[in-house]
Computed example of a mutant assay.
Amino acid sequence: MRRKIVAVDMDDTICHLVKRAIYHNNIEFPTHPLSYEEMMDWNTDHLRHPASTQEVFFGRPGLYEELELYDEHVVGEMEKLHREYDVIIVTAARPNSVAEKWNWLQRHMPFIPFDNFFACKRKSLIDFDLLIDDGPHNLLPALEAGKKALCIPHPWNLRMRESHPFPLMESWENAKQRVDELLGSLD
Rank of each mutant, 00 (worst) to 15 (best):
A92S: 10
Y70N: 02
A99F: 09
E72W: 03
E77Y: 04
E84P: 04
N103H: 15
D86G: 11
I88Y: 01
L81T: 03
E84N: 09
Y85M: 12
E100W: 10
I88V: 07
K101G: 10
H82G: 06
K101R: 14
Y70R: 02
V75T: 07
H73V: 07
L69I: 05
N103W: 14
T91W: 12
V75C: 06
H73P: 02
R94E: 10
K80S: 11
E72G: 07
P95K: 13
H73A: 13
E84D: 10
Y70T: 04
H82L: 10
A92N: 08
R94P: 06
D86N: 12
E72L: 12
P95Q: 11
A99N: 08
K101W: 06
G76T: 03
E79W: 05
G76M: 02
L69D: 00
E77C: 06
W102Q: 15
E77D: 06
V98R: 04
A93I: 13
E77P: 02
L81K: 02
V74A: 01
E77Q: 07
V74L: 09
E77I: 10
V75N: 00
A99H: 09
I88K: 04
L69S: 00
H82E: 05
D86A: 10
S97Y: 00
S97D: 00
D71V: 04
E79Y: 01
E79Q: 07
D71P: 00
E100L: 08
W102D: 13
L81E: 01
T91G: 11
W104F: 13
E79T: 09
V75I: 08
N96Y: 05
S97Q: 05
A93N: 13
Y85I: 12
N103A: 15
Y85L: 12
K80P: 09
N96W: 06
D86F: 11
L69R: 02
Y85P: 05
L69P: 00
S97L: 07
L81N: 01
R94T: 12
H73F: 09
L81S: 04
R94D: 14
L81A: 03
V90S: 05
R94V: 15
R83K: 05
E84Q: 10
G76L: 03
A99K: 05
I88D: 06
R83Y: 05
A93C: 15
P95R: 13
E79I: 11
A93D: 13
V75F: 02
W102A: 15
D71I: 05
W102H: 15
E72V: 09
G76R: 01
E84R: 09
V98K: 02
D71A: 07
E84W: 08
